[in-house]
Design a protein around this nucleic acid. Structure first.
Lengths: 184, 184
DNA sequence: CATTAGGGATAGGGTTTG
DNA sequence: TCAAACCCTATCCCTAAT
């Protein structure tokens, strides 16, 4: 029914590895268009590259299940630049948790399967921990909070956007006092 | 380098639908900043809203029986041990139509069969909001309240009759005067 | 500079095949 | 049976246009 299976040759696998080294994982179309690899990989699609890389990563990860393959890659921390980020400080150490919608709804489409959700559920605590441990006079800014959390824990690639939105929401709901600049 | 996918929750989808009803499609930033929805959608960007709406619209238009039957078949494969009672409600529950978005209350939970009642219960809030925002000296009359609500939200064809009955009842029970005075 | 529309790429779950 | 290879599509990304 489907297409006949095209088994990956050692040359193709080597080219894929080299492509990931050169362009990074996730840049499948870029790798494919690179003249350095297109001669070997011209039979493959960007989706093929992604799928094959997933399989290779699984094997490299001790023959675990495919779901654990995410752990294989490490991430780099972007250099934080101090500039025009807002200063924030805690306003109450209240015990009530501000939990976002994802964690509230046990029936609605959330299985115990994805890591980002767990990260989001802990964001309030992480932010408090960051501000508390940083102990910067006048509160901590967005950048240093992000840097602290990324240094202490794994963070998803779009973590800065999530954190920014979370801080904005906490400020809007009175969880944080805005010191220097106001959001919105 | 890619992005972990943040799956849309039913609450987020409901808020987006309600936001489109209120502000119109294409007003993504406006929807996002509306306090009525920001509590649910604060993790999303205006582009996220645009993308999700596109996806939802596509599904509402050309979604045949193919996908549904495929998923239905898949359901029967694992664990053929129990009787027939497990087939009841889990699956057919999830297909809500785009057309029904107009009657959704984003702040409410998700009970399936309280549509008309919920609308009427919401009328108090809508009337209050209308009088409050109109700020007409001495309170607002029926016509201007209806105009306001119809301008801000979608209203069913018989809305004027419903509103009229509601206002009459509120006046008879003293709630209307109270509202008018409170928000004068 | 901010926002939106639209095309295109990716991530991750699911399915098929040798 | 099982994993490599392939499919599906919700979500995310990039860019032009305004």
């Amino acid at each position: 029914m489907g297409a006949p299976k095209q088994k990956w040759t050692p040359d193709e696998e080597a080219a894929l590895k080299a492509g990931v080294v050169k362009h990074g994982p996730g840049k499948w179309r870029t790798i494919l268009k690179d003249p350095q690899f297109s001669g070997v990989l011209y039979l493959r699609s960007n989706v093929d590259l992604k799928d094959k890389w997933r399989n290779m990563s699984v094997m490299a990860n001790g023959w675990g299940s495919r779901e654990r393959s995410r752990l294989a890659l490490k991430r780099m921390h972007p250099t934080p630049k101090h500039g025009e980020s807002s200063m924030l400080s805690t306003y109450s150490q209240s015990d009530d948790e501000l939990v976002d919608a994802r964690s509230l709804d046990p029936s609605g489409g959330s299985s115990p399967n994805d890591g980002p959700m767990r990260s989001i559920m802990r964001l309030d605590n992480l932010i408090m921990e960051a501000i508390s441990n940083l102990r910067e006079p006048g509160g901590s800014n967005k950048t240093s909070i992000a840097t602290y959390i990324e240094d202490q824990y794994w963070a998803p690639p779009n973590f800065k956007r999530i954190l920014s939105a979370k801080l904005k929401h906490m400020a809007a709901t009175g969880k944080l006092i805005k010191l220097k600049r106001k959001y919105k």
